[in-house]
Each structure stands twice: as C-alpha cells, then as structure tokens.
C-alpha cells in the first residue's frame, strides 16, 4: 500500500515538547524526508530542550548543540569536515528557530549563503522567542502580543521578509512550507537534499503556549495561515525564479486566522482591517514576483 508520507520514523516519542507543538511535528516530518544520514546543528531554541538531556536524544541522528548565533556557521564547519573525510552522502542541516534566524543568526546565515556552503538551513518559525518565555522577534507578525510587546503596545512592525533577503543571496533553492501540508513539506526537503549549495527552508510551526491557542488547533492554524494568504507557499530557484505552489483564489478572511489566537485578542476592528490590508498588499507583491499579476 502506498502511504502519503515516508513510513519511516527517525524521531522517537518521549520528547519534551508541549502538547500540540508545531515545531515537534515539523522535525518529525523533516526527518521522515531527510532520513537517518543527517547531522543537525541546533542553536539555543525550544528544540535544544525538546531533544532531551544528554546522553538521551529524541532525534536519533547526531545533533550538535551550538551557540544561539551560530547555527549556520556550525553547519558550514560540519560540512567542511565531511568534505575532508570524503563523505558526501550526509545531509548537513542547520535547524534554528525564528529568533536564531531572523535576528541573531542572520550574519552566520548570510555568510554561509554568500559562500554557497552545501547545507540545508531550516528555520522552524513559531514567530517569537518561545524558549525564553515569548519575547518578540523580527518574525513576530504585525499586531501580535508578546511579553515584550504587551497589549498596550502590540507589535507595530510587520514580519521581516526573510525569504526576499535570502533570494537576494541568489542561493540555489529557497522554499516555504508548513505542517498542514506535509506532502508539500516532504517534497521540498527531498528537493533540498538533491540540490547542491545553500538551501533555505522556512517552516511555519504554530506554538500553543506562545500563540495562546488550543493544542488541537495547531494544524488547523497552519492551514488557515495558508488559506488566508498570511503565509504563501513558495519555491525560489537561484533567487530569480519565484514559484507560487498554492495560488489561493478565494482567501479566507484574515480574521478567521486571528480570532483563534489569544495573542491577537486585544485587536480592534480597525486593527484587523489594517492587518488584512497589509496581507493583501504583500500578496500582490508575491503575485508580481511569481509573474502572476
């Protein structure tokens, strides 16, 4: 019988993620695609805790715990070591949160991308610094509550456009994915495995305690993010060819996505209108870049 996803489980249960953690599902799906011949470089983030205490590890592949800002440079070093050893059939993966990617790790990532080091950089994006108690990051969306953007002063800046920053580096492969579309996620990682050079994959991973959502809504939220055009599913080749994987012709109003999340509960009607306008404008821009406008 053909299964919708690879049957193998590289990751084991027993890990320390919260109930309904999107980031845990992201890792499970990613390792299904990447397989056991993978090495992970993980900076300080929720995943350094989820994995469990030494000498235990839930991922069943070598995992290098590294400093917050060094996911990409550690992965570059691991790749260099494999090259010296003459081993080519190993996936070297930098696996970082949005804080470790959009903020503090951007320099190491930009360096690796500029050298076109042969690594896969995966950012699991839960849109804040969750491990240290929900502080804002450059990936936190417009209007969201976090402990450093309290309800009286919710985040006034939109999410940083990381995908365009990476596209400007002209790396061979960039993709966005999310857990509600696991076949799409697995296909993109399989493509990243086969591509030489720096690959960047951004995976939206809802976080119940950080987003103030019900654990059972994790997958639903991930789907609504795509269906409301908040999170477009994209592939970009060599920074130039933009491909929109799912052209959402009849979008769900953004409010449907926002209203399930406690971090947006303080928003008034005009705030929601402003967010909807921002999402519409961004979508137009994406359509133009994909040659669809």
């Amino acid at each position: 019988m053909r299964l919708p996803l690879p049957e193998r489980e590289v990751m084991t249960p027993g890990h320390l993620a919260c109930q309904g953690c999107g980031a845990a599902l992201t890792m499970r799906l990613a390792l299904k695609a990447l397989g056991p011949r993978t090495v992970l470089s993980i900076p300080a983030c929720c995943w350094s805790v989820i994995d469990g205490p030494f000498p235990h590890s839930t991922v069943n592949v070598p995992l290098f715990h590294t400093a917050f800002e060094t996911a990409a440079s550690t992965a570059s070093g691991i790749r260099a070591a494999f090259e010296i050893l003459g081993k080519e059939d190993v996936n070297v993966v930098a696996w970082a949160g949005d804080g470790g990617t959009y903020d503090i790790g951007i320099q190491a990532l930009s360096g690796a991308a500029e050298r076109n080091d042969n690594i896969i950089y995966i950012c699991y994006d839960n849109e804040a610094y969750m491990n240290t108690g929900i502080q804002r990051s450059a990936a936190t969306p417009l209007g969201a509550w976090t402990t450093t953007t309290p309800v009286k002063h919710p985040k006034s800046e939109p999410k940083k456009d990381m995908v365009s920053i990476l596209a400007a580096h002209r790396i061979p492969y960039i993709a966005t994915a999310t857990i509600a579309y696991p076949e799409d996620l697995v296909r993109k990682l399989e493509r990243a495995k086969e591509t030489k050079g720096t690959k960047f994959i951004l995976i939206l991973s809802p976080c119940p305690p950080g987003w103030k959502t019900r654990p059972e809504d994790t997958v639903k939220l991930s789907r609504l993010a795509v269906q409301s055009r908040v999170f477009p599913l994209l592939e970009i080749e060599n920074g130039e060819k933009w491909i929109l994987n799912m052209n959402i012709k009849k979008p769900v109003p953004v409010v449907e996505y926002l209203k399930l999340q406690g971090r947006f509960r303080h928003l008034k009607e005009e705030d929601i209108q402003r967010i909807q306008e921002y999402v519409d404008k961004e979508w137009e821009r994406i359509l133009k870049r994909c040659g669809l406008a």
Binding site: T12, P13, G14, H15, L16, Q19, D51, G52, F54, P55, H56, S57, T58, N60, P62, L63, F64
Partner: peptide, 20 residues
C-alpha cells in the same frame, strides 16, 4: 561516569509522556 563522547546513545523513550 559520563561516556567520553559527544553523541547521545539513548533515545527519549524512557520518558513515558502518556502521564501528561
């Protein structure tokens, strides 16, 4: 008593999270 190595040897399956 720690093993002189940097790679974990055991999984997290001792941690029966069903109790949560």
């Amino acid at each position: 008593e720690y093993p002189p190595m940097a790679v974990s040897l055991y999984t997290m399956m001792f941690n029966k999270t069903g109790t949560w």
